[in-house]
């Protein structure tokens, strides 16, 4: 899986480092002073992840949790995201990570306790309000959880913070580690879903829809709260039918009443990221879709189209019995 594992000197004897290395006994390791010394120092082409992927193990420095931008989650409550990993094993052709770090290598941060302390501070700042903490802003929260082993720590942390909520965002079906843990009402696993045809064309290397739906079903049956993201929606011919079918499929695995919330967002790119998409996936149908460059620099569908897509999907969800209060539309206007 990895070409080389770079380890920060101060992380060499960390228990998580040792358990990680046990899983890759034949991979060459190299000790470095700090991750920044190598990672992102030169621009490593994104698609080299297909053949040469390195891993970095170390401690996250600087800000450990960040306030989330508007339209990140359910409105009216404070949202934060925390970073315990950079980059992802998947290869979604619209993913902004292809232009974010200048390297596709995977970085795993091990100082979860420090992240946890920051989470506690933020959650206790407004104990009367529900603060949300999201994992998976720069990675997939579950895809490699069997290697990184941090889930038990966060479950234990949020058991002590019942007023706060934790969201693990994922496109994976890797729920083995989650199923080992007793479910908590305030720890929600959210799955990003798209119609199967779109998954095949855009969500490269991700599990097929069926596998994700089965994972959702298993987690739900085990009592874990589930949320859904229909984001990014990419418009193509037959869009309504495809989403109608997707919602039907979803509801057959997870009752509408069991969906904690469902976010709906339409594909959009900063200009630089779109440039990377063109470079990496020149044959993607994104380049023949109705995207335009807005005055604010974002590449996205024109406003009437965005609004139409969002309202159509909302309508379909309501028809399927999803509660209106649980649907939030990611509108960036």
């Amino acid at each position: 899986m990895f070409d080389k594992i770079f380890i920060e000197e101060e992380a060499l004897n960390h228990p998580k480092t040792l358990s990680f290395l046990k899983k890759f006994p034949s991979v060459k390791t190299k000790t470095i002073d700090s991750i920044d010394q190598v990672f992102g120092k030169v621009r490593k082409p994104y698609l080299q992840k297909r053949h040469n992927l390195n891993a970095f193990l170390g401690f996250k420095k600087g800000q450990l949790i960040k306030e989330a931008p508007p339209a990140y989650g359910l409105a009216g409550e404070p949202h934060y995201y925390f970073i315990h990993q950079y980059n992802c094993i998947y290869e979604c052709d619209y993913c902004y990570l292809q232009g974010y770090f200048n390297s596709p290598d995977l970085v795993f941060f091990l100082n979860h306790e420090e992240v946890g302390n920051e989470i506690k501070k933020a959650a206790n700042k407004n104990p009367e309000r529900c603060s949300w903490f999201h994992a998976g802003e720069f990675s997939d929260s579950l895809a490699l959880s069997h290697l990184t082993g941090e889930l038990p720590y966060y479950f234990e942390l949020f058991k002590q913070l019942p007023q706060a909520k934790l969201e693990f965002r994922t496109k994976s079906a890797n729920i083995t580690e989650l199923l080992k843990l007793p479910p908590l009402k305030n720890v929600i696993t959210s799955f990003s879903l798209s119609p199967e045809k779109r998954i095949q064309s855009s969500d490269l290397k991700t599990p097929p829809l069926k596998h994700r739906l089965l994972a959702i079903q298993k987690l739900h049956q085990a009592g874990h709260p589930i949320a859904i993201h229909f984001d990014p929606i990419i418009y193509s011919q037959g869009f309504e039918e495809q989403y109608c079918q997707l919602i039907e499929q979803l509801i057959s695995y997870l009752p509408a009443s069991a969906i904690q919330y469902i976010s709906v967002g339409v594909v959009r790119f900063p200009k630089d990221i779109f440039h990377q998409v063109k470079r990496n996936y020149p044959k993607s149908d994104l380049h023949s879709s109705e995207l335009i460059k807005s005055d604010n620099g974002l590449i996205r569908y024109p406003r009437p189209m965005r609004r139409w897509i969002l309202s159509k999907v909302k309508e379909l969800l309501l028809q399927a019995g999803v509660a209106e209060s649980g649907i939030y539309l990611c509108m960036e206007d």
Binding site: K44, P45, N52
Partner: peptide
């Protein structure tokens, strides 16, 4: 060669031939 890096240079350049694994 697949990708050419430069010492202390951020930019990198890739070969138009996509078949190599050597940088």
């Amino acid at each position: 060669i697949r990708t050419v890096y430069g010492q202390d240079c951020f930019k990198s350049f890739s070969s138009h031939l996509g078949d190599s694994r050597w940088d």
